[in-house]
Structure formats: C-alpha cells, structure tokens
Design a protein around this nucleic acid. Structure first.
Lengths: 136, 136
DNA sequence: CGATTTTGTCACTGTGTCTGTTGCGATAAC
DNA sequence: GTTATCGCAACAGACACAGTGACAAAATCG
C-alpha cells in the first residue's frame, strides 16, 4: 500500500528552516527533499492553515516558520493534514443488519481507536526541537 | 487509500460457519459477503496456513472450521494475513545521512511501534466467541 | 508599464495494495 | 465421464499519495 510520508518529510524541513532564519522557496525545499516544488506547496499549504508557517509570493517570497520549534509537535503536523484513519485496516459494512458483523465491527473499531489514541499520544510528546542534532 | 477489510470479513464468516456445523463452499460464503468466490478463497487460504480452517475439493467439498471459536482471536486472523505495517503513515528515507531526518524517523518509528503494539494487544483480547449474538 | 520571481492551482500520470472478475486446470464424488 | 469444487494466474478497478507540466495570480524591481 502506498505510504504517507508527509509527516516525516515536513518535520525534516521545518527543522532545517529554523537553522536558516528567513524564507525558503519551494524550490529550495524541494531540492532538500529530492522532490518537486508542487509537492512542497501542497504539504506546506496544509501547515499554513494551522498557522505554523506563512508564505509570500513574488521575488523575495517563500516560506517562513511562524512558531519556535518547541511549540510544534508531531501531533500538530499530523492533524494539519486532516488525515482520515491512519490505518490500512478498516471495518466492513456489507451487512449492516447482521448482528455478527456489527459485533465484529464494534470489536475491531475499539481496537483501532485504542491504537489511534496511543499513536496520537505518542506524537503529542515529540516536539521539533527534540530533533536538533545532539538532542535525539 | 484502499482499506483492508479482510479481518472484519473473515471474522464474520467464521462465526457463521460455526453455526452451520459442516462445510461451506466458497460460493456460499461469497454470497454471505456480497463478493466473489475467488476473493473468499484468497482470504480463507491465508487462514488455512494457520490451521484455523481446512478445505476439500470436489463435490461435497468446501471449507471447514478446525478450531472452536474461543480458540481463535482477532490477532490470530490478523497475523495469518502476514501484514506489513497496519499504518498508512511511514518514515521517509530520502537522506539517510541527514541527522535531522534520522531523528525524525526514529521518533516517528517509535510512535508507530507503540501504536502497533497497542493494536495487537487489543486484537489478542478479542476471541470469535465474543461475537456470538447476545455476547457483545 | 513590463520583466522576473514565486506561490496557487489544476490536470494528468505513476505507483502499490486490496477488491472484483474471468478463465482454466486439478481433484474428488458419483 | 460428468459434475462440483478448490487452486491459481491474469487483468481491470478504486483509491490516495507522489511526481510532473502548464498556467494564472501576485509582488518586486527597474
């Protein structure tokens, strides 16, 4: 299944942006990630909605960090992407009236919810400043 | 992302099979799941490897439960499918030598592992007999 | 104003996995 | 030998992120 690597990539980028103090263009960031400026704009655009970065158009434009690293968690980034379930596993709704299927779905949903809660809890404890060299 | 509904579907099927005591053909099971016999064979084939069901060819053939419901957990079924990571989220390995990327990957991997462990722990507590009507 | 830089956005293709389907071979009962 | 059934290969479909090209919008600078 194709994997979503946006969280790891954007975390990487934001830390590097904090080094350079100033604006970074999509082109520059794309070079850092071995990818395309459009991909960068898509990813960074989601973060802008959350107020973590801002963008300016035109010459001298680009992307800028709006918050210090210690105020941004992996959970913040994760939520900014408005993800659906982070799981490849899902319930099946072929027979909504079948008591057995409903039980099975209920049990599976509970397991998925518990795991998702654990995931978000773990993400909430990771701040970007923890990724600075010499801290991890 | 396309979702994997095999766990929920096969749990559903196994419980129904326990009602009927005897063999069920792929055709019959497919009708129960609103799907195709080939899909059923693919899913059930994985379970056969784990010894949870057996199959017979020819007339009077079909699928049969090999273990009582209380001896089969969701975790057993899940593992039978030899899944990779159950997450749509993954680390990014564009710059293996970058200390920041490595930190980010390490942090993310830890969060994913914790969540996966929680998921499997939850699945291990669900036995198929808990899905019987009047028990869930 | 006009040229240049840069983001914003659309449209399309590529990729990987589960699902759905068809076709055919293998096996067992009768 | 006919029939029922699994086994398996091959292919198309759906879906979500990644990658790419094209062009519009906006801001700077001369």
């Amino acid at each position: 299944m194709s994997k979503d690597t946006r969280l790891a990539r954007v975390a990487h980028v934001l830390v590097h942006m904090s080094f350079n103090e100033g604006t970074a263009t999509s082109e520059t960031i794309a070079a850092m990630l071995d990818t395309n400026p459009v991909v960068v704009r898509r990813i960074m655009g989601a973060l802008r909605e959350g107020g973590y970065v801002s963008s300016e158009r035109g010459p001298k434009g680009g992307w800028q960090l709006e918050r210090p690293l210690h105020e941004i968690t992996f959970l913040n980034i994760y939520k900014a992407f408005e993800p659906g379930s982070p799981f490849t596993i899902a319930t099946s709704d072929d027979h909504p009236k079948c008591a057995v299927e409903r039980s099975a779905n209920r049990a599976l949903s509970r397991a998925l919810s518990e795991a998702a809660a654990r995931f978000e809890q773990a993400l909430s404890k990771i701040t970007l400043d923890q990724l600075l060299p010499g801290k991890g």
